[in-house]
Measured scan of single mutants.
Amino acid sequence: DSWHDTVDGIELELHGADEELLKLAKELLKRGVSEEEVRRIIEELLK
């Protein structure tokens, strides 16, 4: 799946992010949310 590559990229960027955020990112990508949107959501949550 192409979203796996996206998640791997996000995981590299979010090496400090907790497991729950990564699960959320994967779930959003699986549901068709764009990579940009996922990054934006996670950045908001990390604030």
Rank of each mutant, 00 (worst) to 15 (best):
E37F: 08
L12Q: 09
V38G: 01
L46D: 01
K26G: 04
D5F: 04
E35Y: 15
E13P: 07
D18W: 11
K47E: 05
G16H: 06
G9Q: 06
L24Q: 02
E44M: 14
E35L: 15
L14D: 04
G16R: 02
H4I: 13
A25Y: 06
E44W: 15
K47H: 09
K47M: 12
K47V: 08
R39F: 13
I41N: 01
E19N: 08
R39A: 04
T6Y: 10
V38A: 02
H4G: 13
A25Q: 02
G32P: 01
H15A: 12
L46F: 06
L12M: 10
L22E: 03
G32H: 01
I41E: 01
E20W: 15
A25N: 00
G32S: 01
R40K: 08
H15Y: 03
E20G: 12
E11D: 13
H4E: 10
E20S: 14
E27D: 08
L46I: 14
D18G: 13
A17Q: 08
G9T: 14
K47C: 02
E37G: 04
D5E: 08
E43Y: 15
D1R: 01
E43V: 12
I10S: 10
E43K: 12
G32D: 01
G32N: 01
K47S: 08
L28S: 00
G16N: 06
H15G: 13
V38Q: 00
S34W: 02
L21S: 02
V7K: 07
E37Q: 08
L24K: 03
V33N: 04
G32Y: 01
L12K: 09
D1Q: 12
V38K: 01
V7E: 08
R40G: 04
E20A: 15
I10K: 09
R31I: 06
E20T: 14
D18A: 10
H4Y: 08
I41R: 02
R31V: 04
E20V: 13
S34T: 09
S34V: 03
R40Y: 07
E36M: 14
E36R: 08
L29M: 06
H4N: 13
L46S: 04
I42Y: 01
D8Y: 02
H4A: 08
I41A: 02
A25W: 06
K30Y: 09
K26P: 00
G9A: 12
R39C: 03
I10F: 14
E27C: 15
E36F: 15
L12F: 10
E37Y: 09
S34Q: 05
E19M: 12
L24G: 00
I10T: 06
E44N: 07
L22A: 04
K30Q: 08
L28G: 00
R39S: 04
K30L: 15
E19A: 15
I41P: 00
L29I: 07
I10R: 05
L28Y: 03
V38F: 03
E36N: 10
I42L: 06
E13N: 05
R31H: 06
D8S: 13
D1N: 11
L46R: 09
L45C: 04
L45F: 08
L29F: 05
A25H: 01
K26Y: 13
E44K: 07
D8V: 15
G32M: 02
G9I: 14
I42C: 02
R40L: 07
L21K: 01
L24A: 02
G9H: 12
L14F: 14
L22D: 02
S34Y: 03
L14G: 04
L28F: 03
L24C: 04
G16D: 06
D18Y: 11
L46M: 13
E11G: 13
I42T: 01
V7G: 09
L21E: 01
K23Q: 09
I10C: 02
W3G: 11
K26T: 05
K23F: 06
D18H: 13
G32W: 02
E20C: 04
W3F: 12
I41D: 00
H15E: 11
R39I: 07
K47Q: 09
S2D: 10
L14I: 15
K47R: 13
K30M: 14
L12G: 07
W3D: 11
K23P: 01
L45G: 02
D1G: 12
V38N: 00
I41T: 03
K23S: 05
G9F: 15
I42H: 00
G32L: 02
D5A: 07
E13C: 03
E20I: 12
R31Q: 08
K30H: 07
R31D: 03
D1I: 09
V38I: 07
T6P: 09
V38Y: 02
E37A: 09
G32V: 01
R31T: 07
G9E: 11
L29A: 02
K26R: 15
D5V: 10
E43S: 13
K26M: 08
L29G: 01
E37S: 04
E44C: 13
D5M: 03
G32R: 02
S2G: 11
D5S: 08
L21G: 01
S34C: 05
L24D: 00
L22M: 13
R31C: 03
A25T: 02
E36P: 10
E13H: 04
